[in-house]
Design a protein around this nucleic acid. Structure first.
Lengths: 146, 146
DNA sequence: GCCACAAGGTTCGCATATCGAACCCACTCG
DNA sequence: CGAGTGGGTTCGATATGCGAACCTTGTGGC
C-alpha cells in the first residue's frame, strides 16, 4: 500500500503518488463502475470496456493498493466480487472533479448526472478551515525539494 | 478539442472523456508543474521527470486539447513556453482532489502544502446549489446507457 | 449421462508505447 | 572559436497493451 514517493521520478509529490496508484488508463474507470454498483468482474468489464486481462491485472493491483476489497461470495464455483474500501470511496471527489471537467470540456451532453436533494450537483472545493473557495489565490509551500 | 465520447470503450461518461485527455501518465503532472510556475520545457522536464520525447509529445497534445497554450517568447532562437488556459486552470480541482487523496493514502509526509490565508488547506467538495457537502448520498441518473 | 452455457479468469502472439541515451540545431557568452 | 543552453528529434531495446482463444468449475436442459 505504501508506494514510496521517493521511487517516483520528478518532484516529490502526493499527486504523483496518487497517480502511481490510480493513474493508469483503467483504474479510475474501475472505481467509477464499482461506485455505480457494478461489483462483478463481468459487470466491470462491460462498464469499462477494458480488455479482460488488463481488468484482471488492475483489479488485483487495486486490491493490493487498498482501494478495492475482494469478497468471495461463492466457493463452488469460486466467485468473488469487488467493493470499495474507505480509500476507494475517498476517490469519489477525484471522480466528481474529473466528471465536472469532462462535462464542461469534452462532452456535448453530460451523459450522467449526479444529483442529490433533487438537483444536479455543481460543486466547488471549499476550505474546511476558513470556508472559502479554494481558488487561484493559494500559495504552495514545498516542504522538500528534489 | 472535442474528443468524442462515443469513440471510447465502455460506458459513455465524461470521466472517461476527461481521462482520454488528461489520463495518461504525465499529463496531470505537467499541469501541476505549469500551475506551480514551471513554464519552460526544461523546467517541466525537471519537475515531472518525464522522458524528453514523452514530454514533447504530451505538451503538443495538451496544447491541441486546449489545456495549455504555447507562447513564443523569442524567435531567434525559437523559444516557447507554456501556460494554462482556462480549461487548464479548471483542472486544478482535480489536482487538489488527487493531492488530498495522495496525502492521506500514499505519502508519509505530505511533501507540498497548499496554503491560503495562512493555514493549510483541507478542503471538501461542496455543492454550490445547496451548500452541503457532496458525499455518498448522491444519486446517479444515467441519461444514456451504452 | 451428455451437451451447452456462464463466471471469472489465464495464456498466447502480435502491435504499439515508452524508455534512456545520443544526437541536432540555433543561438549566446566568454 | 569553443563551450554551453534551450528545445527539441531520432534510435534501438524493452515493457505494456491488446484481442482472441482457451481453461476450470460449476449449473440447467433433456
Amino acid at each position: 500500500m505504501t508506494t514510496r514517493l521517493d521511487d517516483l521520478p520528478g518532484r516529490r509529490c502526493s499527486i504523483a503518488g496518487a497517480l502511481d496508484v490510480v493513474g493508469d488508463r483503467w483504474a479510475l474507470l474501475v472505481v467509477r463502475e464499482v461506485s455505480l454498483g457494478a461489483h462483478r468482474f463481468s459487470e466491470i468489464l462491460r462498464g469499462t470496456g477494458a480488455p479482460r486481462e488488463r481488468l484482471a491485472a488492475r483489479l488485483t493491483a487495486l486490491v493490493d493498493a487498498g482501494v478495492l476489497e475482494r469478497r468471495e461470495y461463492s466457493q463452488n464455483p469460486p466467485r468473488s466480487d469487488y467493493h470499495l474500501t474507505k480509500a476507494g470511496r475517498d476517490l469519489l471527489p477525484v471522480l466528481q472533479a474529473l466528471m465536472q471537467w469532462g462535462d464542461r470540456y469534452v462532452a456535448d451532453v453530460p451523459p450522467v448526472e449526479l444529483r442529490h436533494r433533487g438537483h444536479r450537483i455543481q460543486a466547488s472545493w471549499v476550505c474546511d478551515v476558513c470556508g472559502e473557495r479554494v481558488g487561484r489565490d493559494t500559495e504552495r509551500h514545498a516542504t522538500h525539494e528534489s
